[in-house]
Design a protein around this nucleic acid. Sequence first.
DNA 1: AGCACTATATTGGTAAGGCCGCAATCTCAA
DNA 2: TTGAGATTGCGGCCTTACCAATATAGTGCT
Lengths: 245, 245
Amino acid sequence: MQGARLYQQVAEQLAAAIAAGDYPPGTRLPAERKLAERFEVSRPTVREAIIALEIAGCVEVKGGSGVYVVDANAGTFKATDSDIGPFEILQARIMFEGEAAGLAARQMSDDEIAELEQILQEMIAENATEAKAEVADEKFHLHIARGTHNDAVVSVCEHLWQLRNSSSISARILEKVRQAGSKPRIEEHLKILNAIKRRDAEAARNAMRDHLQRVVQQLLDATEAEALEAARREVNAARERFALP
Amino acid sequence: MQGARLYQQVAEQLAAAIAAGDYPPGTRLPAERKLAERFEVSRPTVREAIIALEIAGCVEVKGGSGVYVVDANAGTFKATDSDIGPFEILQARIMFEGEAAGLAARQMSDDEIAELEQILQEMIAENATEAKAEVADEKFHLHIARGTHNDAVVSVCEHLWQLRNSSSISARILEKVRQAGSKPRIEEHLKILNAIKRRDAEAARNAMRDHLQRVVQQLLDATEAEALEAARREVNAARERFALP
DNA sequence: AGCACTATATTGGTAAGGCCGCAATCTCAA
DNA sequence: TTGAGATTGCGGCCTTACCAATATAGTGCT
């Protein structure tokens, strides 16, 4: 908290006050000037803090009227937005995308299923080229999410992929996996597609969970290999350093 | 774009310029005075725009040095984020929070379970007062999410509640429900708590799904009460579509 | 009672200036 | 020649003060 920017401190205190119930959702919180006086900062600083809370989805400002509380619990700043590990993200994906696949199996139209098949073809083509791309993989999974015909499900899945793509830890480990020459498993995706084609919700759910579970396993193997490699380098460095002349 | 706050317009243009490659990652972008001159706005406005980009994870400010580009693609504002209907959000919550409850039943510590019980007490107290508050309800559900000890799950659940609270459609319908005098069901939450206490993952999952399914039912009843004929058809369609498998 | 108008409160935006940290450069001595 | 320390300019940070736009409430007139 010390050394942080002033508007962040104000935003944090304000969010704490909101979460504590001082300003329940729907109510209007004090005017900028009052807040400035209360926190002993200038008005622009209060404005900045309010903008931060607005972006966090905690409050909503209505011009000329006031700033209103929207979500009492949305103020928790994830200042270091995402440093969520890949295993946590994958566990969440197993939980959620599994259910989404089950729902999509019942809701997708024939056209959408055809598009999904097309994306799978793209993935095969992508695998043929030695590129490291996996954009088709993301397209495949998000297309299934859209196949639920539920915007909230789509939003959540997009959120999960954003977590994955913006996580520095994930980026490092995923890079290792790519270097290991691993590619998206076509057969596993095909199983999912076929289950959806049969409109078999339970099979689609299980196929998705099984697929992601295997990705977890793949990541475990890769990290283990990485740990071994790091240990080997360390030993070699020590051996060189402490070698007898 | 028109009518939006000024700092948002500036942030959007700036993000577009960054995404276009004018300022590659790692480089320092012009001083805020220069930017103020270039966008023909005042310096505080530029500061606000930079704060917005900073929260979005697009840039990083280093005190006394300058503001540096971090992620070229993080500037996409989700300004049009929400207008997702409450039924869609609830369906997603059934799918995801059910799984989360099951995982939490296995992962929560005894202390966390005690805190959850405390929150339930808050909910009872809240119900006693004639207030329309339901902040304890949100606290209860998010505490279960945290009980999974998985930050990705927490992030997703927070995202869902944010969708709910920021959706104008939801706000309208939820207000109707509140006017109908309905309060969070204590018994249903108690069932969830007891299942978690017993470490019974399957029971916790089912209790959560059952609870949310009843909320759907409650919403259906509330909307049906004042629905026009056209709305009635839509509700019936929704009831069929959102039925439990 | 209903309606139009005004008064006030509140946010939106601007201008100018002092302060402090950082970093490059410049100077001076070894 | 080279290294270390002082200087200076740049840039962000925060403040005070001011004016504009707007929504809400109150008020008076019809």
